[in-house]
Structures are given as structure tokens and as C-alpha cells.
Amino acid sequence: MQRVLVTGGAGYIGSHCCKALAAAGYEPVVFDNLSTGHRSFCRFGPLIPGDIRDADELDRAFQSMMPVAVMHFAAQSIVSDSTARPFDTYDINVNGTLTLLRTMLNHNVRSIVFSSTCAVYGPAPRLPIMEATPLQPISPYGRSKLMVERIFDDFDDAYGIRSARLRYFNAGGADPMGLIGEWHEPETHLIPVVLDVAMGLRKSLRVNGSNYDTPDGTAVRDYIHVDDLAEAHVAALRYLLEEDESIALNVGTGIGNSVDEVVRAVERVTGMRVPTEDGPRRQGDPAELVADPSRAQSLLDWKATRNLETIISDAWAWHQALRQHETVHHKENV
């Protein structure tokens, strides 16, 4: 069985990709320092605790596991944190990736699927966003991801390291079986925050901007089910191993939903009312971000198939189970 080293594999998207890798016949090996990931998510293959900035830890992992490829999710990914603490963002996202690439070279591993982001585009001049859209990120987070993409260009030319840079839009949902899901501390993503309101864990949802130039005034985003996203990663890995060619692809649905539409969908799925309050726009937030995923569909023979209602239904089931577990755990330790 071929092994794939998954950096950040104890996190939200990384763990779902481990599940997809296992289902496709690979053995995912999680390499994660567990600073934001969860040990309980490492259920599809072995866990090697470690930091991607530590060359010795990486070297031991490659030596013992001999992976055929890498999926790279380990990163600082909160935009506001990147603005407040850019040193940490560049240290983890850029320096950590360089350390990982050096280790790959030392062990003759030449394929890497990279967790990139639509933040590399910045405010897009037109929609939907295509891969040819100018790359003009406006946050340290987006700039760090673009730097890594540029590094991949140079490593492709010089060393033959092939990369698939998957530019995500907004991932949501959870494993339908309830094994893993979205669990951040603190939670900043829209769908789990709205579900918190539906469960009564938050008083209301603050809508950051209600006067955008969109049909209902709230920001529009492209929401993709995390399992669709994971399947795209496996397809990208196969492409790298079979075609030996680097690619950069948008991974989304091509459908935009506004904040208000997400709130209404949560109310339909849960049967709960979600109170909202108007708040100021967040700095750098564009009115609308929607992918053109046609290139990924063509090259990878992949397409997102799960809709917003499915995303929310799966997330709701996971969310309830997580909160119930936290309540039981709290009672047991009182």
C-alpha cells in the first residue's frame, strides 16, 4: 500500500482528506504538531507528532514511512491573525514549507498536493474567478500562500518537484458518519458559528456587512462540502503521479450563496430561528467570491456534487454530537 504523508492531517480539511485517501487505497500518515488539530481525528492511519519547521522530525518521518507523495495542510490560516502576527504566518507557511521541500528532496519524493486558497487572488475584477485571474492578495495569509506557489514554480523547474496547488473557496460540512467534522477553537467560520446560534450557544450572528452590492446586501461566497474537497485532493494526487505535471486549480462549486441565504438554510435544516445583528464590514472582505471550477473538472474528472443543504445537514449532525460530547465530558469531570 502506498503511503502519503499528510502534514496538518489532524485538522479539519486534512483529516477528511485522510479519510478519502484511505478509501482510495492509500495509507495516510499524519504529521501534525496538534497545536490546532485533534488527536481523535487521526483514525485513518498512523500519527507522527511533529512540526514542519523541524527538519530532524520531518527527516525521521520520511525515513520511517517512505511516502510516495505529500499532502500539505499545515499552516497558519486565520487572516486576522496573519495581519496581527505576520512573523508567525510567514514562519509557518513559508519557512515550514521550505523545510518540508528540502526533506522531500533528500528522500526523493517529487509529488505534493498543496492546500492553497482563493485569497491568492485578492479582490477579483470579475466573477466567476478563473485561474487566469490576476494574483493580488491583500493579507499576509494570502501573500504567504502565493509565495509558496511561486516557490513551487522554481522547485518544479530546478528539481522536478510536481505540485498540485488547490485554491479553496469556503469549505463546510462534515463526515456524514459523524467520525470527524469542523472543530476550531475559537471558531470563526460562518456555518459553524450560525449553528452555534441555532443551538443557543451564541445569542445572535453578527453579520459583517449588510450593504454590499449583492442581491440581499450580504457577502456571497462559494461553499463546498469538505468531502467534495477531499475527493478533489485524491484526484489531484492521482494526476500528479500519473501525468507528472504541476497544476494550479480552483476547487469550488461555481455557485454563490450569501450570508443571509446560509442563515435561512440553517433555519430550514435545524428548525431553529437564527437571530442576526448588523456589524461593520471586515477589512479586506470582498462582496463576492465564486469559483470557476471548470479546469479542475476537466483535468481531474472531478465535480462537487453536494449542495448547501447537505453541507449544513452534515455539519448540524456533527455539531450536535460534538456539543453533546463536550457536555458529557464536562459533567464527568465536575
Rank of each mutant, 00 (worst) to 15 (best):
P176W: 02
V148Y: 03
A158H: 07
T214W: 04
N211R: 11
Y141N: 06
F152T: 08
F152C: 13
D157C: 00
W183D: 15
T218K: 00
W183M: 11
L190F: 09
D156H: 14
F152S: 09
R202C: 00
I138R: 04
V194E: 00
P140E: 07
T188D: 04
L166D: 00
P215T: 08
Y141W: 10
L205N: 01
A158R: 12
H189L: 13
D196N: 12
L201P: 01
W183A: 14
E182P: 14
A171H: 01
A219E: 03
S139V: 06
S144Y: 01
I161E: 02
S210V: 15
M199P: 03
S204R: 13
M147K: 09
R202H: 10
R202D: 05
I151W: 09
R202Y: 03
P215K: 07
S144L: 08
E185K: 14
E187Q: 14
G172V: 13
R143C: 12
R206H: 13
F152I: 09
F152V: 11
L146C: 12
G173K: 04
I191G: 01
R202V: 04
L190N: 05
P215I: 07
V207M: 07
P192K: 04
D156V: 03
R150H: 13
I161N: 03
V193K: 00
A219F: 02
D175W: 10
Y141V: 02
T188V: 10
L179A: 13
G178E: 07
P176E: 01
Y212G: 02
E182D: 14
Y168S: 05
A171R: 04
R150A: 11
R167Y: 11
G142C: 01
G172I: 12
R143P: 07
D213H: 09
G209E: 06
G200F: 06
R162I: 03
T214K: 02
W183N: 15
Y159D: 00
W183P: 00
Y168G: 00
P186L: 05
N211E: 11
T218Y: 04
N170K: 01
A174R: 11
E185Y: 10
I191T: 02
L179T: 04
A164I: 08
M177R: 14
D196Y: 01
L166A: 02
F152A: 12
T218E: 10
Y168F: 13
S144N: 09
R206S: 14
R206E: 15
S210Q: 13
R202L: 11
V194D: 03
R150Q: 11
V193W: 01
F169V: 01
S210I: 11
E149H: 02
V148T: 03
A164Y: 03
G181H: 06
